[in-house]
Every structure is written in structure tokens, then in C-alpha cells.
């Protein structure tokens, strides 16, 4: 009964779209993406933060490390006592908050991109191997995946950071060691589906080597779901890095990181709320933008995952 109404909708479809002129599917995808205003805006924000990180020394109005106790806890420009020289005010050491936020983007973006990229490479490789070779390899990788899934994310990262000590490289390592699992699961599931496809069967019948089939036939076809997952995950990674930095387990002072800036400001909540809250706005905006951007990318590049 319900099927009937649906069918009628389906019947209507051929008449709906006039024959599109032949063009590459990518151009079509791009056009669809550009039509989504929220996605375009959020991608622009993410790119702007990336540019901010890249060109921090030219963008930041001041040296983020330069302390001046005369300007200790100076309010932002819109409050009494603020001045345009320090639009977002100054922290407990009189350092310019805007400049520190600009430089703080470096930590968030570097760690976000590095973790997602490394984890995607490791996860895709292992997922591809597990899904294509099956057997012992699959079981072994599956065991490792199950074990790592047994840890709450932040607990795992905190445990490792506690053991290894703070530092940028250690954060990346701690997060990658857990993050690859998610990509691996997606890649494995996609590989399992892809290996049953005709084009893979055909390649196998033609005598292609397993390595060639995995890289040449399967990989290109599982890439888009993997990339969609990776963009989503970057939002989580940014929050995790900020959380570790907030706990003092992240990048060490005086390097500015948004999470540790919030932590520093906590002691001055009563007199200077801006020290703790403004860096949080930066985290929130970046994470929100990544989330919205990846939603837009997903809708265009992997419509199957659409909620």
C-alpha cells in the first residue's frame, strides 16, 4: 500500500530532470556542493582558520609570548578599560589574547589534520588488508580493533599521555593509536562489499595480483566513504586535543593552545571572564564549521550515509 505511493513518486522522476549535458561527475558534485550555502560558509571558515594558522606571524597583531604585567587582565575593546591595540584583551601575564588565539590555531589545525591523515592511511591500509585477505589477518586486526574499542577515547589518550608525557608528537601518537580503528572498520566493511563486485571478479579472473586489485580496483572505490568519515572525525580530534590541553596534558606552555588558554583563565573567572571564554569560542566555531562542512561533503560525495 505504501509502496504504491512511493512507486508513483518514482514514476514521476524521469520526467522531472531534463537531460543534463554530459560533464564530469566531479564538476556536478562541485556544483551541488556550491549550491549548499551552509556548507560553503563552513568550508570557508575552516579554510580561514587554516590560513590563520599558516600565516599566524603576519596576522597576529602582537607577539603571543610577549608578557606585560601592566596590561594584566586588560578587558576586550568593547568593555570599559579596553583598547583597540588589544581587541580581545589580555591574559594573566598581559599577553594579547587575539594573538594567542591566532597562534593557537596552529596547534588545533596541525594536530587535527595530522591525526586524521595518519589514522586514515593506517586505518585504510589495515581495513583493506583485513577485508580483502580475510582469514588470519582479519582475525588479528579484528582483535586489536575490538580491544581498542573497549577504551573510552579520552581515557585511552589520557592514559597514554600520562605515560609518555606531554608534547605535540605524543598527542598525535596517542590520538592516532586509537583513531585508526574507526577508519579501519569503515574501510573493512567497504572492502568486503567491493570485493564481491563484478569489476573485482573480472580483475581477479584476468589474473591481477592481490596487491594490484586492492590498490587499483578496491581502494579508489572505498576512498570516498573513508574521506567522509575522516572529515567528520576531525571535529572530534580538535575537541580531544583541546581537552588534553585543558587538563595540562597537551602542548606545553608557553606555546598557545586554545584548550590550555581556557584552563589558564579559569583562575580569573570572577574578574576577567574573557580570558577563559574567548579561546573557547574559537574551538566552538572551528568544530561547528568542521561538522557542518563534513555534513555538506557527505551529502554530495557519499549520499548513502545520509541520515
Amino acid at each position: 500500500m505504501r509502496a504504491e505511493a512511493v512507486e508513483e513518486g518514482a514514476l514521476a522522476r524521469p520526467a522531472e530532470a531534463p537531460a543534463a549535458p554530459a560533464r564530469s561527475p566531479f564538476a556536478a558534485d562541485l556544483r551541488e556542493l556550491l549550491a549548499n550555502r551552509t556548507a560553503v560558509l563552513s568550508i570557508a571558515i575552516v579554510l580561514a582558520v587554516a590560513a590563520m594558522a599558516l600565516f599566524a606571524p603576519w596576522i597576529a597583531p602582537h607577539d603571543p609570548y610577549e608578557a606585560n604585567l601592566l596590561r594584566r587582565l586588560q578587558p576586550p575593546v568593547w568593555l570599559e578599560g579596553g583598547e583597540w591595540a588589544h581587541p580581545l584583551g589580555c591574559d594573566q601575564l598581559g599577553r594579547d589574547i587575539l594573538s594567542r588565539i591566532v597562534f593557537g590555531a596552529r596547534v588545533s589545525m596541525t594536530i587535527g589534520l595530522l591525526v586524521v591523515a595518519i589514522a586514515a592511511v593506517i586505518g585504510t591500509t589495515l581495513g583493506l588488508l583485513a577485508g580483502y585477505l580475510r582469514g588470519f589477518v582479519d582475525v588479528l586486526i579484528g582483535r586489536i580493533v575490538d580491544t581498542l574499542l573497549g577504551f573510552p577515547y579520552l581515557i585511552f589518550a589520557i592514559g597514554l599521555m600520562a605515560a609518555m608525557g606531554p608534547g605535540l608528537a605524543n598527542i598525535v601518537l596517542a590520538l592516532v593509536l586509537k583513531e585508526w580503528v574507526l577508519t579501519c572498520r569503515v574501510a573493512r566493511a567497504e572492502t568486503l562489499a567491493a570485493r564481491e563486485m563484478d569489476y573485482v571478479e573480472a580483475a581477479r579472473a584476468l589474473g591481477a595480483s592481490p596487491a594490484r586489485i586492492m590498490l587499483g580496483e578496491i581502494l579508489p572505490n572505498i576512498l570516498s566513504p573513508v574521506l567522509v568519515v575522516a572529515t567528520f572525525r576531525m571535529a572530534t580530534i580538535v575537541i580531544l586535543e583541546a581537552s588534553l590541553s585543558f587538563l595540562g596534558l597537551g602542548v606545553q606552555p608557553p606555546v598557545p593552545s586554545w584548550g590550555s588558554m581556557v584552563a589558564d583563565g579559569r583562575a580569573f573567572l570572577l574578574d576577567a571572564w574573557w580570558v577563559a571564554t574567548l579561546p573557547g569560542v574559537a574551538i566552538f566555531v572551528l568544530v561547528l564549521a568542521i561538522n557542518l562542512a563534513s555534513q555538506g561533503l557527505r551529502d554530495v560525495f557519499d549520499p548513502r550515509l545520509k541520515a
Binding site: 513518486g9 514521476a12 522522476r13 520526467a15 522531472e16
Partner: peptide, 9 residues
């Protein structure tokens, strides 16, 4: 009737 993207069914 069922409104759809393609028109009124």
C-alpha cells in the same frame, strides 16, 4: 494528491 519534487502526483 502527493506533492513531490517533480510536481503534484
Amino acid at each position: 494528491v502527493f506533492p513531490t519534487r517533480g510536481g503534484l502526483v
